[in-house]
């Protein structure tokens, strides 16, 4: 792309149509919620997976399953579990929580899909931490929770931040699981990739599709750049 066309495109992007704006903010909202939803469980599972116990490999495989399953199948599984007649769906209805056809449902589907990425990133940072430091903290009088809070957590913080940014960026593009679980409802579940799909389906949607594609492209790229910048900065702060 040459510089003048890029500028023209950027200028065009500044004035988003209402439906584009809706899809963009929905995408950001869904991705943010999915990260919030999966962060604590991901830290916990990453921590568990660095310990030795029986059945660790089974748990490891389960965590990574969404990476290898077709996204449509994950959406289908969620539909079975959280649908109106699903086991969990029926239970949640007692609390007046409905996930199917809602943006919260979209966030759940996105969270499940990006969960392995998150666990992986956190786990790598955990494995880089010298376990001997925890022993040192023990001899200095720190109990288990104290050690986790004062030593392990701060040391894995760069990994957690990288995981959050990666999962957020990946969450912006989730398609298969979302459309299967919560359908494609404008203003509620129609995120950028779903809007792109809809535009492609309509006979005169070429321009709309191109615009959405460009928005997605720029969004993804800036996400990755921010992630990289953050990791480097954290490294230099820690002097490593």
């Amino acid at each position: 792309m040459t510089t003048p066309t890029a500028l023209v495109s950027l200028a065009a992007l500044i004035s988003l149509t209402p439906s584009e704006y809706e899809a963009l903010s929905l995408s950001l909202g869904v991705a943010a919620r999915s990260v919030l939803l999966s962060l604590a469980p991901a830290i916990f599972l990453a921590w568990i997976l660095t310990r030795r116990f029986h059945g660790r490999f089974v748990l490891d495989a389960l965590v990574h399953l969404p990476l290898v399953l077709p996204p449509v199948m994950v959406g289908y599984l969620l539909l079975i579990l959280f649908g109106t007649h699903g086991i969990l769906g029926a239970w949640l209805r007692v609390f007046h929580v409905r996930l199917i056809f809602t943006r919260n449902g979209a966030a759940l589907a996105t969270a499940v899909m990006s969960f392995p990425l998150m666990v992986r990133a956190i786990r790598i940072s955990l494995e880089g931490i010298d376990r001997g430091l925890e022993d040192a903290a023990r001899t200095l009088g720190a109990g288990a929770w104290d050690r986790f809070r004062s030593i392990t957590l701060p040391l894995m913080l760069p990994g957690i931040l990288a995981a959050v940014i990666t999962a957020f960026a990946a969450g912006l593009g989730e398609f298969g699981a979302v459309i299967t679980f919560v359908s494609n409802i404008p203003g509620e579940t129609r995120t950028l990739p779903l809007a792109l799909y809809s535009a492609l389906q309509s006979p005169d949607g070429d321009t709309a599709a191109a615009r959405i594609a460009l928005i997605s492209f720029l969004l993804g790229l800036s996400g990755l750049i921010v992630a990289e910048w953050f990791t480097r900065r954290m490294r230099s702060i820690r002097g490593r």
């Binding site: 001997g132 022993d135 040192a136 023990r138 001899t139 009088g141 109990g143 701060p154």
Partner: peptide, 20 residues
């Protein structure tokens, strides 16, 4: 008595200072 309650100081060969 758990390690954290023994009040036994330990100086490791590799120091193990907390890097953060």
């Amino acid at each position: 008595v758990p390690a954290e309650a023994r009040r036994i100081g330990y100086v490791f060969q590799d120091a193990r200072l907390f890097p953060h």
